[in-house]
Design a protein around this nucleic acid. Structure first.
Lengths: 201, 201
DNA sequence: CAATAAACGGAGTATGCCTCCGTTTAGTCT
DNA sequence: AGACTAAACGGAGGCATACTCCGTTTATTG
């Protein structure tokens, strides 16, 4: 019963290489064609069999998560910078602007974020955690400074922004989204003499 | 060249009956299983061939539109009532509440509305027009009364609400959505001494 | 240079969308 | 009533994509 620890082999070189190739191909394929694009196409472009793709990324979500890990990292880093450089609310807005921009650049990002924003936390665990943390970094100071309501959390905000991105298309959609984001942010402001309670009909 | 008007035949009874059956089945199938459910399943449940389904509803969207015509009608009617009975903003909020409720009851509604909210206007023409009209009924008085900003249109509002519904799941999600809707509505208010211009970073 | 665990790849299975067309049938005409 | 015909029926089949399974290949190890 005391089986040897048998320290694990070094991971095979071809495995690592193929994994990288698939990510590269996925980036290319999803860039045009959106996330609808078939996974077979990704495999073909990567020059690997479909089986190999699935071994490395058992689900479409897993592929998204791996693909956008770097971008999410960047967003988190940006949040850190902004929270240091700008006053709370301004930093928050700038960050959201960057987020919307990202979604515009990398088409697939929207789908990935949508998953991160409402899927069971098992999948996309890393992405979700990272994003919530980033938003929290910006949200907390503003709340503590008394500038915004305290009952809107990072999840709420992320879902709102992604939801807005989801239904907008065509040229200039990002400006449209930001218009609506600004309305929302206005609503988050603590307004003296204007209790946040909704007008109960 | 002068072909007889040859007045059209009376529509066949089985055609009408089958159309109705398909709608009935679609309602049942989409109620559970969401809109993901296969159309083959709908046809089977309706007791008709798949060909028949497609003849009556050439696209999935066409089926949605037909399915939810009644619901959209109700929403439009409700808007008319509310705009008469309640002060502008309160009426608007109540209507949105009803909209969210609808989406909760009929799961498929969300997908149908999402289409209505951003698809080329050819499809879902009826639904889109009706909804925008309904929202306009509530939005206009509030804008003219100077209670809310004028730069948020019916499309903006519909997209916002549907977008919010899109990413929320699980028990009690509708309350969550309404919380965020209330924030947005707060942001739409014209605030004395608080210009709606965003804080440019 | 075996031995072997790991990775490969693609044929195969499953599922769903949608079309096409031979068959059936309801309404119309005499 | 019976023949006629446009319209509707239905499901086989073509196509595309998601995902699995397993016989074959290969990188590492001793």
């Amino acid at each position: 019963m005391t089986d040897q620890p048998s320290r694990p082999r070094k991971p095979r070189a071809d495995a690592i290489r193929n994994r990288e190739r698939v990510l590269e191909a996925a980036k290319a394929v999803f860039s045009r064609g959106g996330t609808e694009a078939g996974l077979e196409g990704v495999a073909r472009q990567a020059g690997v069999g479909i089986g190999t793709l699935y071994r490395h990324f058992p689900t479409r979500e897993a592929l998204y998560e791996a693909l956008y890990r770097r971008e999410v990292e960047q967003l988190a880093e940006l949040a850190r910078q902004l929270s240091a450089e700008l006053p709370p609310l301004a930093g928050l807005r700038r960050w959201i602007e960057a987020l919307v921009e990202f979604v515009g650049t990398k088409k697939g990002m929207a789908a990935a974020l949508a998953l991160a924003a409402h899927k069971p936390p098992e999948l996309m665990a890393y992405t979700s955690a990272r994003l919530y943390e980033a938003i929290g970094t910006l949200l907390r100071p503003a709340a503590e400074a008394g500038e915004i309501r305290r009952d809107i959390g990072a999840e709420d905000l992320l879902r709102t922004v992604i939801g807005l991105c989801y239904l907008h298309e065509g040229p200039g959609w990002q400006a449209q989204v930001m218009r609506l984001v600004d309305v929302f942010l206005d609503g988050m402001r603590v307004q003296p003499g204007h209790p946040p309670a909704p007008p109960r009909g």
